[in-house]
Write a protein that binds this DNA or RNA. Sequence first.
DNA 1: TGTATCCAATACGTCAATGTATCGAGTATG
DNA 2: CATACTCGATACATTGACGTATTGGATACA
Lengths: 211, 211
Amino acid sequence: MAQVSTERPAVRRRAATRERLLDAARTVLAREGIQGASVEHICEQAGFTRGAFYSNFASKDELVLALFDREREQMFTVLRAAADPSSFEGLDTLDAVGVIMDRFLLGQQQDREWYLVHAEFELRGVRDDAVGREFVAASRQVRTDFEAFLTSALEALGRRLTIELSHAATIVMGTYDTALREALLEDRPIDLGLLKGTLPALLLAVTEPVG
Amino acid sequence: MAQVSTERPAVRRRAATRERLLDAARTVLAREGIQGASVEHICEQAGFTRGAFYSNFASKDELVLALFDREREQMFTVLRAAADPSSFEGLDTLDAVGVIMDRFLLGQQQDREWYLVHAEFELRGVRDDAVGREFVAASRQVRTDFEAFLTSALEALGRRLTIELSHAATIVMGTYDTALREALLEDRPIDLGLLKGTLPALLLAVTEPVG
DNA sequence: TGTATCCAATACGTCAATGTATCGAGTATG
DNA sequence: CATACTCGATACATTGACGTATTGGATACA
């Protein structure tokens, strides 16, 4: 975290402008898409004019990359906190699974805006090689973090997987993504019965007691 | 299928132009995105000028909807054919699962272009209410078809699910989507070990013999 | 063979968005 | 208190994409 109060006021102000522009970009990109969002719209959402924008960013592309970096950092922080195994020791197995899933759901910040921006990044990553490499690197790290999370969570429950770790991770993350996407598309709450009932049960069915 | 040869030549020619424009749109939309693709680019991909375009479509939006309809039709056709249970009777269980998965993989036309266009539609569906309703209706139909496919496939194997059908469908479709997305992002083949090994085994683990 | 019809090409006006260059206000510093 | 500087606002030139209106040419039909 940056030591905000030790900076000079001018620097603080500039940083605040940048943040406001990034916040606005998140909202507007979610609403209009990366290509559809104009610099103008982002600026009026932030309460600035384009002058402020070009004083802080060289182009829309630069803004998008900066936003991606910021969101990625934040995602890692949340995921790493969720992966801390100290908090689900000694719980009954099914309760613990519930706790883990709750934390995962919270950690993923299942709000519409985040999903939309992330999907935009992803699509751009598949399409554009340069952006793609960056996105792939970030995605790999998320996956690595999630696999560590899964392993330590199961370990805390005294169990280990009987299928490949990467397969388990894909199944859980894929099911979560799809459930969230369908919920957003149909404008209804996410299917908790699937995420907190069926999916954990399924996962536990392919584990064995350790030792 | 349209009865191409019974139409008058002028009508045939017009229809061919439309198809060429739709094909071009598929390619260009995959490359540049719905918002990023200009009518100009679509036309030069098709080998026409904008005059031809506006002679056949009122706007880019109309073209996009027409493309969506065409792709959806095609997807349904393939999925319904794959769901025909007559072809996997009497097979050994694991072999049959392999056949089913192969067919599903083929049916989903796992090429990059299709994935990108579909993802564009989906994103637009989440964002835009009007498009959203259409996309949701189409997605529901795909899901219904897939659930029917899954049920009849398992039935042909003499088994039935012990978990909710919709949950099983989400898990399988979600895993497939995610595996495909990761493969495209990392530019490598899709993980067949997951799709033809782990996932079917997992699914069979939550079924019971019928009767 | 001549004519009518239809389709795609060309040319044009409009508009929105971009990025740059300049200006004015607020703030740090001596 | 005065001056220099930085940041954000305003104004402007440029670009490119859209949709329309019109034209040229190919094909069907008498």
